[in-house]
Write a protein that binds this DNA or RNA. Structure first.
Length: 578
RNA sequence: GCGGCGGUGGUCUAGUGGUAGGACCUGAGCCUUCCAAGCUCAUGGCCCGGGUUCAAAUCCCGGCCGCCGCACCA
């Protein structure tokens, strides 16, 4: 059985996750997190929030899953997602219809043509299937959109989409979010939420799904001025698999510190390097095996439409590398697009230390002259004059000035342009922030954590399976058992369970069957500690605490038990020191 | 979406054209002074639809789901 199969079996049996709506046959790519899985997910999200929001001083928001079409027109997802697909009737291969047309004809931008036209072109040119050479003439051209579409309100006049990434919910609200950050760069806005992609072929349980949780951080920075606090992470060692190494015959993963990676230019963006460092330690914190982990740089052809440089964090499972996080330097792509499409201001005003006095050439052309003179071109001429004044004020020194519009020259008397050089005081400038984006797939993190935590060993000759999840992440912190359900032990144990719950621990109480069975049950869901009440407990107010990984036990006093468990889970003390 | 393989209680699995058996798990009880012990009892199943047949969980077709490969993964 593969690692993945063992995991899926355990996940279903023990309540981590299972295919959704199985009673009706299910739907591929949708999974329900059971009690253990939901608790684990919640813990991972809390740990992420702690590190990437609280510790960084960022803000967190929660935007809608459904957004109106305009948002995705601006973001590029509508075009980027609406692929023309043609399927070969012979071999069944699916191809991008627009690409096939572009490759076989002089036509460019075939994507902008209606599907019928593309079909006709394929028939007219008798284009063949690139896979098997059969003719594609007559095969239908379909759209395949990876976004889930819906209608907002009754009717179809207001289309909406389920977001394919949580990021747009942040970008689109930038003007408001900037206000909350008092318009001071840099600032970061995070979001943990669902995203949806109508994948052609969901695979590998939680790895490729149609509905998933993302934890995304959009860190808005001034590209000219802001620097990450690299000193905080410069000694963190990163396993880097650069684009260069991937393409080299003998390339492999290089262990470089964040400092070295930046100095040697392996990671070009300091910001990306910073977050690689932060994330590396965080992955370790949540129990990902650092011996089965790497950062892989995207190859040039692999980069998304918005990304300038991108590294993926990848974890090895069953010999495959699973992408668990993307670290992208998105530049100002998204804010720029939303500014263009919405007409709103997606910049931050940066005030200078000292106001700057500059001489600015301006024109205020007399339209009552330009209008009659140039007719419909008058506005273009006025715009050209303005541009020229900024570019080359000396052009206005003579009697006439000549500008070119669409290859045609227009000559205007300078006095009609009202040219002047004004002295203005500038207090600052509008800056369009750049965006650094670490984007985590929560389901994939969970899948990796479970796969890496899955451990088999032997206790007293019996095989045992347990999850060595870090106590902070474990769905349940402590199991409380009476050694036997008699002589007051159960009552005593229930009181202890209540007390531990009141102290904030996640507690399971179990009095069924033999004690060993109960330990194993907790082992399989990764519960780090079990407290057992025996005869001595009732008499002396002590209990045994059993550690999951070693199965060793220590007797401790009931007094301060909750604090003892808390210190163990938080790593402030070790089991050996009890 | 294509191709290959598969689908029997919660899990793992046996099985045959005559409507299913085991193990584990789970629950109840007994026993038990710390690691899946034992005994008794109990709950629970042939993925869905159509076809062939006197009879289908079994054979055929389609669908759904899963795994693998291809394609896709902006």
């Amino acid at each position: 059985m593969s690692e993945g199969e063992r995991l899926t079996e355990l996940a279903k049996r023990r309540g981590f996750y299972f295919p959704a709506a199985g009673a009706y046959g299910g739907a591929a790519g949708f999974w329900t997190y059971g009690p253990q899985g939901a608790a684990l997910k919640s813990n991972v999200e809390d740990a992420w929030r702690d590190r990437f929001v609280l510790q960084e001083g960022h803000q967190e928001i929660s935007a809608p899953d459904v957004m109106p079409e305009a948002v995705f027109e601006a973001s590029g997802h509508l075009d980027g997602f609406d692929d023309m697909i043609i399927e070969c009737g012979e071999c069944g291969a699916t191809h991008r219809a627009d690409h096939i047309v572009e490759d076989n004809t002089d036509i460019e931008e075939a994507e902008s043509l209606p599907n019928e036209d593309v079909m006709d072109i394929i028939a007219d040119h008798d284009i063949a299937c690139p896979s098997c050479n059969a003719s594609l003439a007559g095969e239908p051209v379909d759209n395949f959109n990876l976004m889930f579409a819906t209608n907002i309100g009754p009717g179809t006049s207001s289309p909406g989409y389920l977001r394919p990434e949580t990021a747009q919910g942040i970008f689109v609200e930038f003007p408001q979010l900037s206000e909350y950050a008092r318009n001071q760069l840099p600032f970061g806005v995070a979001q943990i939420g669902k995203a949806y992609r109508n994948e052609i072929s969901p695979r590998k349980s939680l790895v490729r799904v149609r509905e998933f949780t993302q934890a995304e951080l959009e860190h808005f920075v001034d590209p000219e001025e802001d620097e990450p606090p690299l000193a905080d992470v410069e000694d963190v060692t990163l396993p880097l698999y650069s684009g260069e190494s991937q393409q080299a015959a003998d390339g492999g993963v290089e262990q470089l510190t964040v400092g070295e990676a930046v100095d040697e230019g392996v990671v070009t963006s300091d910001w990306v390097a910073y977050y690689l460092g932060v994330a590396r330690d965080w992955y370790e914190r949540i129990g990902i095996d650092m011996d089965r982990f790497r950062f892989r740089q995207h190859l040039p052809g692999e980069l998304a439409h918005y990304a300038a440089d991108c590294w993926d964090a990848e974890a090895e499972i069953d010999g495959d590398w699973i992408e668990i996080t993307g670290f992208a330097y998105r530049g100002d792509y998204d804010l720029q697009k939303h500014a263009e499409h919405s007409g709103e201001d997606y910049t931050v005003f940066k005030q200078y230390d000292e106001p700057v006095t500059v001489e600015r050439p301006t024109v205020d052309p007399d339209m009552s002259y330009l209008g009659p003179e140039f007719g419909g071109d008058a506005q273009s001429v006025a715009d050209a004059l303005e541009a020229l004044a900024e570019r080359d004020p000396e052009a206005f020194e003579g009697e006439d000035v000549t500008v070119e519009v669409d290859g045609e020259a227009y000559t205007v008397p300078v006095e009609e342009t009202d040219f002047s050089v004004e002295t203005v005081t500038e207090n600052g400038e509008h800056v369009r922030p750049h965006v650094v984006e670490p984007s985590f797939g929560v389901g994939r993190l969970i899948y990796t954590m479970l796969a890496h935590a899955y451990t088999e060993d032997e206790v007293d000759g019996e095989e045992r399976t347990y999850l060595d999840l870090p106590p902070e992440q474990a769905p349940t912190t402590v199991g409380v058992f009476p050694l036997m359900d008699k002589d007051g032990m159960a009552e005593y144990a229930r009181e202890i369970a209540s007390a531990l719950r009141e102290a904030g621990h996640s507690v399971t109480y179990d009095d069924s069957g033999a004690i060993g069975r109960r330990y194993r049950r907790q082992d399989e869901i990764g519960t780090p500690y079990c407290v057992t009440v025996d005869y001595e407990s009732v008499e002396e107010d002590t209990v045994t605490v059993r550690e999951r990984d070693s199965t060793e036990q220590k007797r401790v006093s009931i007094d301060g038990l909750a604090e003892t468990i808390a210190r163990l889970t938080e790593g402030e003390t070790t089991f050996d020191d009890l």
